[in-house]
Design a binder for these strands. Structure first.
Lengths: 356, 356
DNA sequence: AAAAATTCCGTGTACGAACACGACATTTCA
DNA sequence: TGAAATGTCGTGTTCGTACACGGAATTTTT
């Protein structure tokens, strides 16, 4: 039988006795408060190191009256059930667990179709003095600008959903989009009975501004290049700028008629339900349909069998992790992981009810 | 912009003022300590309710010197990399996060092949005074006996991995095995090119003592009954009592030769790597192979392509949740969910690196 | 050399809850 | 009716850290 026990905690008082100074002095050393004789400071620091002092967070936050405040910069969700509510729920859960430690969260929303709103909200964030920022770097250019300002002000930040390389982020929380595309490709490869054509649909304007859609497509193509070197399967990419306008149905229909052998459709984001509507309407249910994200509309089509697989990324967990990671960095002063790839999950009719 | 802020906390002091009694009295009401006049007690209780008093856990654990101690009853892992280390890692992680709150964990291990060791360890657990128990009810009979004793002593417990119905458990953390079987069936159904025979392998002695293996098989069969009513696919079940003895290879080979159309093999637990060895050796790599749990041996075969899919259940998360759930019940006095089904995950070569 | 400014550091109180001690009131028993 | 037992409650200290205040020592200024 093995027993796991917490090790004996070292208190400030112990350090004080050991260094033969008062508690107040230790406090000054720990928090760079007031002034301490250089020699004394060094002595205390050595003992702190030696005894591996870890502050008691309970007592610390109990005594301290200051609260940390974080800013969240997320896209505006289009409806109550759309994707961006899910990371937000994770944020709320993190808040619930951390609220005893004194935390305040301000949420800023921008429009997914208007990059100026992103800049506006960025400016608002910079006006206040936040202790940390969680942001979805949705628009590359505007995000970089915000990042520069945050760095100048020494405000730590974490990315969620998509990533920007080579900036001083604390952490990135999200999927490896390339690999997620490869996984989708594998599912087609395994489940299509023979060589066929597969349609890849992007629902987005300014594709090149959305790096993770590009990455997903890349991973998808790369899979087939490796596993179908002879190119027996045919891949056709279509971009649809305005998903809410149903006129794209015609475009899709035309492409399919022209090819004649389209057996699978891959949608690179959560808008897969729009094409599901189309397939249902046209009674084309033999077509294998794979998309992303478990939003309500998609869940319904998954249950009814129009959508076969959904690739998901635990958005709640992402929101939760983003906040807790930031908290650990700012309050606990722990070193956190710089990249935190979330799982790439496959959801079907059979396991949807248990997905969290 | 929305701001999420913690609501103002009510302190014992506030209650005391409101009820016009001393802090000591409130304390007595809250903890059934000492004696309180019935009338006073009622008045205080009403105000506690009214103001929705939530104790400050920080101050509470700081002042309280008592620590909770939990017992963990898990199977002995056969090796450093085998399944039961994973829930244990989750337990350790939970311990790390909770250790500031004063928690002690004693780990008891029993042999998976000897139910007497389970009884022995149960007895040891009952000797000490634990505040809660996390157990894997591996052997049904022996588990029931332990449960009865725990109930008699008023010690709360949670189940992990498998479940026993109708006992006063705090919570069950684990998979819905039936549904996980159905999911495996779907994967065969989708990825086998045409009607074929599928082998279902149980690696276990005393099958009937392992309820979740039975459930997985049931879900598997039921899927095909619903989705292949004509029975075009043939399902063959084999039980292998001793997986470490490779003589079972012969039995499998014989069955396959006899049928002639076996295109898929389903293993109902983590022992799938044993049959993977066989397939590799026989160069039968066209056969679709699906099993459970991401242990090291399986991971290797998944990467090399011998195993196609692994159905997983986030064992670390299960261990973590088991401890935190128990903690929330015992210390925070929260009401916790009675059943907590974990996700049923599909792992392939493509997403294995990101699985957590 | 005295006054002023600066550096350095110890003490005391607060955070909110737990818990021990003992005061006072009430009841029980002889 | 008085002593003993019991019931009811308020006070004070403690947990480990944060932080304000102010005293003493040292340096700088005039």
């Amino acid at each position: 039988m093995k027993i796991i026990e917490p090790k004996k905690r070292i208190r400030i008082k112990d350090i004080a006795e050991r260094a033969n100074v008062s508690i107040g002095t230790i406090d000054r050393v720990l928090h760079n408060r007031g002034e301490v004789n250089a020699e004394t400071k060094e002595r205390v620091m050595k003992i702190l190191e030696e005894l591996d002092y870890q502050p008691n967070i309970l007592a610390s936050t109990l005594a301290s009256k200051k609260t940390v405040s974080f800013a969240i910069l997320f896209p505006e969700p289009q409806s109550d059930e759309s994707y961006w509510n899910k990371p937000m729920n994770g944020v709320k859960q993190a808040f619930n667990e951390l609220q005893t430690y004194g935390i305040k969260i301000s949420v800023f929303r921008f429009s997914q179709t208007d990059s100026r709103t992103f800049a506006e909200q960025s400016a608002k964030i910079l006006e206040e003095q936040f202790d940390g920022v969680v942001m979805a770097p949705f628009f590359s250019r505007e995000s970089c600008r915000l990042v520069t300002e945050l760095n100048a002000r020494n405000i730590p930040f974490v990315f969620i959903d998509s990533d920007i390389k080579d900036c001083e982020k604390i952490s990135y929380i999200g999927q490896n989009s390339y690999q997620s595309g490869a996984l989708s490709a594998k599912l087609f490869d395994y489940t299509l009975p023979g060589p066929a054509s597969i349609l890849i649909l992007h629902f987005a304007k300014e594709m090149d501004n959305h790096n993770h859609l590009v990455q997903r497509e890349k991973g998808f193509y790369e899979y087939f290049r490796q596993n179908d070197p002879k190119g027996e399967n045919k891949l056709i990419t279509l971009e649809i700028e305005n998903p809410s306008d149903k006129s794209f149905f015609g475009k899709v229909k035309q492409t399919m008629d022209q090819d004649g052998n389209v057996r699978g459709i891959f949608v690179t984001n959560s808008q897969v339900y729009r094409i599901a509507e189309f397939l249902e309407q046209q009674n084309l249910q033999h077509i294998r349909l794979i998309g992303h994200d478990l939003i309500r509309e998609n869940a319904a089509f998954l249950r009814s069998g129009v959508i076969d697989f959904l690739i998901c990324q635990r958005p709640e967990e992402q929101g939760y992790k983003a906040v807790t990671t930031l908290f650990e960095h700012v309050v606990m002063k722990k070193t956190v992981m710089n990249e935190n790839y979330t799982s790439i999950d496959i959801i079907t009719k059979e396991n949807i009810d248990y997905y969290k």
